[in-house]
């Protein structure tokens, strides 16, 4: 199994739902599905692309209520650890479907710098980032809109919101064996 239902929202994670939802839509632009771009034209930060609200929310404002309750508006986050001396690691998965849970996780997701270049994209960095045998975290978020975002964060850069997100998924999530 890859999901774990009914995970409680992490304590203290609940921030303003309206901000969280809107932010989710805006930053989802980086990994935007081709079809989404039509209306959102480039999806500049602050724009309000639809997040699964094509059918039940006609307005351009982010939905802060009803649509996130809809069946299927499930948020799933996986954190997979690789690297380290062993090379493989466990994967943790958390799934949220209740509105408050989704919103609190989203606010955490939104606080992460998804748009920062991945160190792995700059090959020379691999030699100079320092060291060997460090862990690498692959973080994937499956948004209620069915959009997906991912990032690969080396342990050396796992701080601030990345660290919060990974720690909370580890604490609240279901762990699978090493892969």
């Amino acid at each position: 199994m890859t999901t774990h239902d009914d995970d409680p929202a992490p304590p203290g994670a609940a921030r303003g739902a309206e901000q969280a939802t809107g932010g989710a839509a805006a930053t989802a632009a980086r990994d935007a599905e081709p079809h989404r771009g039509g209306a959102a034209t480039g999806a500049a930060p602050g724009s309000r692309p639809a997040t699964g609200d094509d059918s039940d929310s006609a307005g351009s404002e982010p939905a802060t209520g009803d649509d996130s309750d809809a069946a299927g508006s499930e948020l799933r986050i996986t954190v997979a650890r690789s690297g380290g001396l062993l090379g493989t690691g466990p994967r943790w998965t958390v799934t949220a479907s209740a509105e408050a849970d989704v919103d609190s996780w989203l606010s955490l997701v939104e606080s992460c710098p998804w748009d920062a270049p991945e160190p792995g994209d700059a090959p020379a960095a691999a030699a100079t980032v320092g060291g060997a045998d460090r862990f690498v975290y692959t973080i994937r978020v499956f948004l209620p809109s069915a959009e997906e975002r991912d990032a690969r964060v080396p342990e050396q850069r796992l701080d601030g919101p990345w660290r919060d997100l990974v720690d909370r998924v580890k604490d609240a999530g279901h762990a699978e064996p090493h892969r």
């Binding site: 997979a80 690789s82 690297g83 380290g84 001396l85 062993l86 090379g87 493989t88 792995g120 691999a126 045998d133 690498v136 692959t138 690969r152």
Partner: peptide, 10 residues
């Protein structure tokens, strides 16, 4: 693989 810096430990 992209994991493990391209499978360096594998």
């Amino acid at each position: 693989t992209r994991d493990d810096n391209g499978g360096v430990h594998l």
